[in-house]
Design a protein around this nucleic acid. Structure first.
Lengths: 232, 232
DNA sequence: TCCTTAAATTGACTATAGTCAAACTGTAAT
DNA sequence: ATTACAGTTTGACTATAGTCAATTTAAGGA
């Protein structure tokens, strides 16, 4: 594995080969297996991560032991960049912790760690990189806005929205089904509900002839009605 | 009103006097009265706003007419910067709309509009400004994370958290009460509930001797118990 | 001050989704 | 094939918060 993998990361796509090599020489690459923790919200912040392969969930654990999933992150995206530019001094002094927990949810999840200090020196006089960074954060904000919006809806609406998003983001044309990229348990947590309620909602949709569930494959049999459910 | 007011805006605090004058000459300053709309989520995006005086709410309207408040914005902060660096081409062609609605919630709310093009040219070779921008977005992301986390809690927890945040952010020391900066109706919408439930929750806290409500003044009589309520 | 309107509160009821416990299914390992 | 286990589903019950309607309180204008 060499510095070329960094080219795939959106954030770094404008860097020169020299810069890429320089950055790469200071990065750590690590492979995680399914269920392995990447960081806890109790440990000191040292930098952000990029996903090369696999996927990752970012979550909080509530006092009753329940987890609440904030994001899923997929290849070529970054996570845990939020604290980077906050509390500059505190990060330097290792007084700052990660804002949430993070776990690999697939085997062979390959991550690259960019330490804060490396990124600081890189970004200092590179306004193109800055602007990439801004775009990335803006995109996250947009997603979170959507997430907040949908949380105030009822569970069927939330599920319908999620299914349609997956369906529409699937690039393959003509496909009549989606493959859930995450476990149903993680999906309930992401949708802000519990396994039982999610299960019942799937059943409800199935009974109404809108979808057909077969494991992680969800056949969309009546997109129109699903859209009607999802419409706020 | 001259270009010096821009100095108060966090984002611009590092600009030179010359730069400030240049920016200011291209800005529009407008005063809004309470309840006046600033933009709708249907109109083309032209730029972001800064608050000099007053305050603003950012919200979505659901199909049943209910509004869901995403943020409150207070003086010296910016809002609606999210689309700035997304869809660069689309913004130029005015194909992009504001992502939510925005309304002044106080009389004499003074706003400055920075058009996208002005900001593009300003940020191009100013990495200090870029970094400020990044910090601002990062801060918003952090707040939204908190917001998402709290929405999954029950209403008493959400209210307790909100009251404590207000209480702790109040700089005046020794103050035993907080003054709600927004209407109770807006508060319910922000907390993701409705007026009746908020009212009952205030009453519950009052009956338990934790707070004393008198209009917008909320006396915190038992901070410890309130904290216990808020603890996730 | 009264009058009008908006904001806030209360009660009775309903619906939605969470809890708990049990049963079932599918998959992977022996 | 058998076992073991995690993941999923189902049922009965409960709790939380939303709905609707009515009332009370507060606030702003004439």
């Amino acid at each position: 594995m060499d510095s070329n993998i960094l080219k795939n990361i959106n954030l770094f796509s404008d860097l020169s080969d020299d810069e890429l090599k320089k950055v790469f020489s200071k990065c750590s690459v690590r492979k995680f297996s399914k269920g392995e923790m990447i960081f806890f919200d109790t440990e000191p912040y040292i930098g952000f991560y990029m996903i090369v392969e696999g996927s990752v969930k970012i979550f909080k654990i509530l006092k009753d032991g329940k987890e609440h999933i904030l994001h899923f992150v997929t290849p070529f995206n970054t996570f845990a960049e939020v604290p980077l530019f906050e509390q500059y001094e505190k990060i330097k002094n290792e007084e700052f912790t990660y804002p949430a927990n993070s776990m690999a949810i697939e085997d062979d999840t390959v991550l690259i760690l960019i330490r804060s200090s490396v990124f600081y020196s890189l970004i200092e006089n590179n306004s193109k990189l800055c602007i990439k960074m801004i775009s990335g954060l803006a995109k996250k904000l947009r997603l979170m806005n959507k997430h907040i919006e949908s949380i105030s809806l009822d569970v069927p609406k939330r599920l319908a929205k999620y299914l349609l998003e997956q369906f529409n983001s699937d690039t393959e044309t003509g496909k009549k089904y989606i493959e859930l990229p995450i476990s149903k348990h993680d999906l309930s947590s992401y949708l802000g509900t519990i396994d039982e309620t999610l299960s019942r909602t799937f059943k409800k949709f199935q009974d109404e002839g809108i979808i057909k569930v077969s494991g992680k494959k969800i056949y969309i049999t009546d997109k129109k009605v699903l859209q009607k459910f999802a419409s706020v």
